[in-house]
Amino acid sequence: MKSPVWSRTTSRRRLLAGFAALAVLPVAACSGVQGGKDAAGGNYPTRAVQFTVPFAPGGSSDLISRAAAKAAEKPLGQSVVITNKPGANGAVGDKEVLASAADGYTVGLAVKSLFAITPLAVKDPTAIQVDNMEIVATLNQEDYVLVVNAASPYQTLEDLLKAPTIRYATAGVGTGAQLSQALLFKAANVKATDVPFDGGAPATTALLGNQVEALSASLAETMEQIKAGKLRPLAVFSEKRSTYLPEVPTAKEKGFDVVVDQRRFIIAPKGLPEDVSKALNDAFAEARKDAAYDKFLKDNYMERWEVSDEEARQHLKDAAKQYADLTAKFQLTFGSGK
């Protein structure tokens, strides 16, 4: 956005027009302030860093971003300003982050499912490529758990797989909740119908109300109900048992090679100057040690995922390939994807 050009003859009309433009400026220019001259200097950061959260306020991705951003302000020496730009599982906001100047003043949260699961459901020729971004920091891993209503007769995964009909709730099309169950029931060769809901909360409600037989959801969405004895966990979809549910076996232990989880990390446009990249890395590494951040993770039943840029990149590629292979093997289809 261009700033209004001021001439020396400031007539009343012109002044008014200027005020009108000023009134709109702070809003319209929120994302347009990056790319200043100070990006080149070695004293990054000299002003606030914009942190885009590509999800609506209030969800897990938003809350972890706010916790991390707050903890990063001290080591960074500048404020970190959160802006929510939700849409298309994060694609809208993240594309905007990557299209901005690579000066370290624009970073954003990204989730694994956008790279590993969304491509299975949505065909997008302009989708973000893993190699087209810089991963500034990795944050967390969130596990999925398969639960049934505690009043149901299913005590173990084997019991459930013997059920005459299985209708399972998911948090929506192209989510880890859907993929994990679709793969599990297909691998077990049982007939099951998926019922996608608009998010984890209504899906959990449906299971509590006995509308469906099973549900896979994140620990944060189900743990309170598990603790209250309303839901019974049968399996977790992580590589190893969850530290929050040590008694519950993994699907892998039960003989089904289904590992699905959600991971979150912070991205920036490719080509950050070396010192800027290092400053951001260090700041978020320091932020992850913050006590309030640690408490946030524990309160939300999240695991830490703290690896290097290369490792994270490799993990995303591997997961995308693995899910694509598995869905091809079982001939699963999601949405308009192939």
Partner: peptide, 20 residues
Amino acid sequence: GLDPIVGTARFTFGSDQLAD
């Protein structure tokens, strides 16, 4: 937006902006 059950894009004109 995306079809709530099977995820097919409807009237989005290939844009992310209308996906939800």
